[in-house]
Design a binder for these strands. Structure first.
Length: 312
DNA sequence: CCCCAGTCCTGCGGGC
DNA sequence: TGCCCGCAGGACTGGG
């Protein structure tokens, strides 16, 4: 309830809507970049708190950080959403979409450290935005928390949505890309395949952590130019992408020791226990038992791989 | 068009 | 012990 007090709420306990997590919140805040599985977990976590509920109010939290990037400005945003009923909460790549009956939708990019929470933020000073919802006499809130403040929040009309999420900005979702699209899209760039997998216009939803894991499961060296991949190897990337992203979603994403991702009830994901290469440099490869996991830098980002399992 | 380096941001950890 | 600096990376921008 300290959260409700902080936010100046006169709302009843959050437990009216969702049980508050029984996890202690005192553990050091970890942050991992929300990629597709983490964003999907957030969406599932807050869906019931939004869908069918009406927006009574929204507010910018009084944190001492710069405000999150917002479109339109806050007064206009309020005019557009107050009184609206939420029709759906979905995911598009690494973005969260909160669709309103008017046709407008909130688009939230958690980026590095953003979280959607029903309760218990890792710390209260980085709360950024609050949705106050009603359904009948029930009232509750959902928060956007973001320690680094790189996350963004927009309320867009249908035309703006189409432009913001259209094919020029965002490629096909990694879980929906067809075999033919995988081939066509990877073949048309000479960049190293690891770098290509991070290009959201090529395929949307894969980030730095899962790119390394996908290539390891595919048995492909991260420095291979994407254009030189055979059809067979691209099929392996396709299959590994589906397996890893679905599996990571089942485990509610990855929470790293120095990282920060939590799900909507502020619990850790557990897929980090399944990582085969990410941040395991210097350790033996658990797949082949012989190789040592290497760390290299590509496009200013760390890549992890096993030189024995992953061929050029 | 394609690609890369720089930018934003905060907390942590290594080095001195 | 404490300070400083580098690092972490998603998405965007500007320049080659």
């Amino acid at each position: 309830m300290r959260l409700a007090v902080l936010a100046g709420l006169d709302a009843p306990p959050l437990t009216v809507v969702q049980p508050i997590s029984d996890h202690p919140t005192t553990s050091p805040v970890s942050i991992s970049m929300p990629e597709l599985p983490e964003v999907e977990t957030m969406v599932r976590g807050v869906r019931a708190a939004f869908e069918g509920h009406r927006l009574a109010d929204v507010s910018l939290c009084d944190c001492h950080c710069r405000p999150i990037l917002m479109q339109p400005d806050f007064p206009r945003l309020r005019e557009l959403c107050i009184g609206q009923k939420v029709s759906s909460v979905t995911r598009r790549a690494k973005r969260i979409l909160i669709q309103l009956e008017s046709g407008a939708a909130f688009v939230i990019e958690p980026r590095m450290t953003g979280l959607m929470l029903l309760s218990d933020p890792p710390d209260e000073s980085h709360l950024r935005f609050e949705w106050k919802l009603t359904q009948g006499r029930k009232r509750h809130s959902v928060w956007f928390w973001d320690r680094r403040g790189l996350g963004t929040l927009r309320l867009l009309d249908p035309d703006q949505l189409a432009a913001h999420l259209g094919p020029e900005k965002l490629g096909p979702d990694a879980l929906e890309m067809t075999a033919d699209e995988w081939v066509a899209r990877l073949r048309r760039t000479d960049r190293p395949v690891k770098v290509a997998l991070l290009d959201q216009k090529l395929v949307a939803g894969i980030g730095n952590l899962y790119a390394s894991e996908i290539l390891h499961r595919s048995g492909i060296h991260p420095e291979v130019p994407a254009s030189r991949l055979t059809g067979k190897r691209i099929a392996k990337i396709h299959a590994a992408t589906l397996e890893i992203l679905h599996e990571a979603t089942r485990y509610e994403g990855s929470t790293l020791g120095d990282g920060t991702y939590r799900n909507a009830l502020n619990k850790d994901g557990s897929y980090q226990n399944k990582h085969r290469v990410y941040a395991r440099h210097g350790q033996p490869c658990v797949t082949c038992g012989n190789g040592e996991i290497q760390r290299i830098v590509q496009a200013q980002r760390s890549t992890f791989f096993c030189a024995r399992c992953q061929k050029r």
